[in-house]
Design a protein around this nucleic acid. Sequence first.
DNA 1: GAGCACTGC
Length: 711
Amino acid sequence: MDSKYSAIGGPNSENQNKHGFLKRKKAIVENLMIKKPKFSNGTTSVIEKNNCHEKKGGDQKVEIEKVVKENLQDARKQLPVYMVKARLLEEVKRNDTMILIGETGSGKTTQVPQLIHEMRLEGPGVIAVTQPRRVAAITIALRVANEMNTEVGSIVGYSVRFEDVTSNRTKVKYLTDGMLLREAIVDPLLKKYSFVILDEAHERTVNTDVLFGIVKLAQKERINQKMHPLKIIIMSATMDVDSFRKYFNNCPVIYLEGRSYPVTIYHSKMKHEDYQYAALCTIFQLHATTPPNHDFLVFLTGQEEIETIMHNIKQIAKETPGPSIRVCPLYAGLPPAKQLQVWKEAPPNTRKIVLATNIAEASVTIPRIKCVIDAGVVKERTWCTRTGAERLRVRACAQAAGWQRAGRAGRTAAGAAYRLYTAAEFAARPQHNTPEIIRCPLAPTILLLIAAGMEPSTFPLIDAPPEDSIKASLVLLKELGAIDNETNPKLTVLGKKMSAFPIDPKYSKVLLSAPEYGCLEEALSLVAVLSSENVFHTPMHKREEALKVKQKFISPIGDHITLLNVFRAFCKAPLKKQWCKENYLNHKNLSYACEVRQQLLTVCQRLNLTVSSCGSALDQLLKCLLSGLFTNCAWARGGAGTGGRYVTGSGAAAALHPAGALHAMRPPPPAVLYTELLHTRRPYLVTVSAIQPQWLHQVAPEYARRCRAVR
DNA sequence: GAGCACTGC
């Protein structure tokens, strides 16, 4: 390694501290160095053990429970945040808003709400703690309930989509930020809460960014109206503190020391043209020089890349002496059963190499990783305001992501991180990723803001999206009939109903038009599938077979009816898991679509919509779909024989995606309705159905006229 | 005739 990498953070480096080489910022209010706790990792396993032995004799159980509780309390008191308890509570009492910066393991997420509650600082109100991910909201609530010796759903509860485990006794409520946002539509002043704690703020998801504005306005308005005050706590890992502080009127910032282990960071000494090749070289160099029980975690960009490198590793390993290798892929699209491999310990004298996307950066934690190899790239989705085209491109990731990835090697012991790029390249990268709100379609967010009674033009966002992006979304909402005008938008009756659905406004429009076309039954299923993830699972090596099996679902009308066929067959299948496996379908995503459908049905019933079926009159369903997706039409260009070249309503050229049901159709349909315009190697129309050109004039006459002028 | 990172209501 020495020949190719140089370590940063030598004795004179400002990046070094006494915990190791991982960069940490200096404290403004507090900077505490905390000793390692006695029960750093034992606590959880004791709890699990206890749960497993629940049926044991009474006395023994009590005995075990007592030990567990004592250990839990001991462990709590060892947490960095617990040690600044007095000071922290003092600051909480004194300030309405504060920022809490805490590294992994500082205990801020589990302890701060408990400390506040122990002092009854929340008064008659509830403490809300938001998380970007639902698994986190659930597991943290369970843990805190355990620490407080109560059942989850009583004093401590959680609320995520499809699941509300709270009661009127709940005082500490963990919820996804999306969930709090939906609550804000009904109650923009968040009256039931006396504290709102926004956790993982550094991730800068659209939802947290919008919540910043909501809580800021609610806090101000509650003072104006002389109501009980709203206290705000922003919690985050190291981040762009200055901009956060400025946004929250120079509120105080408290730093907590983390509890992770030192990670030594190495940079590549020279630039690599091909990071995949560099990754392979580094893997085998390290394989030859480190003990076999050191697990590796390699950060790559996507499924295809991971599968390729996995194949290469296996080939090279055959001809390489030394310990054997177990390669584990990890990306979100992988079926859960296959993801489980990652958490299994490798047999003796076998090295585990995990090849992961950035799912391993924050969403999941893999134990025992001693060595991180970071290609320094990420696949990012961007959106073109003018054409509505989305593009996935590989980009260099920000410095913050580099630190986050490196930190994954120091979760359970000291480790090392090898960056496949030079220190100079790293220094030239932006400190933080572009916030999501800058690069995504805004129509859903803007509709939500208007529904919550906010004014989009003056709503305080920490980073403002491009002007034309906001404008485009307002135009779309006007065309959908959700708002009355674009300059001073007010919600229409239709818009109010649209905001009741937790889906893209285009799709809520489809559902609300469905009774008119007598197809709500079908529309619910279709929209549920379209709002979920891809239901087809196509492993690279079994592509042919997967395509063959898919044939039985395919409709000559197009992909939408094909999806409907899949969904209906899934609902009827008795052994769903097995059936999905046989048909190369993603069980998780189809089950999710079922839950979404149920939720959408409930909203429809609340709005008194008539649920009827159009039977075999599928034209009705497509017209209904067009009522929400009328901006997604494309027309065949240059007549027959041109092999599916199309131009969209916004003038963008694109081709039918080869995996689609209409791709082989000759001649290609003169007009199509597409779900997505996606730019990969070329611009493609994805999930497409054939329509009659005159339908657009019937369904959206105003748009059709404007669109013809452009074409 | 290609290939989609990650979340969330």
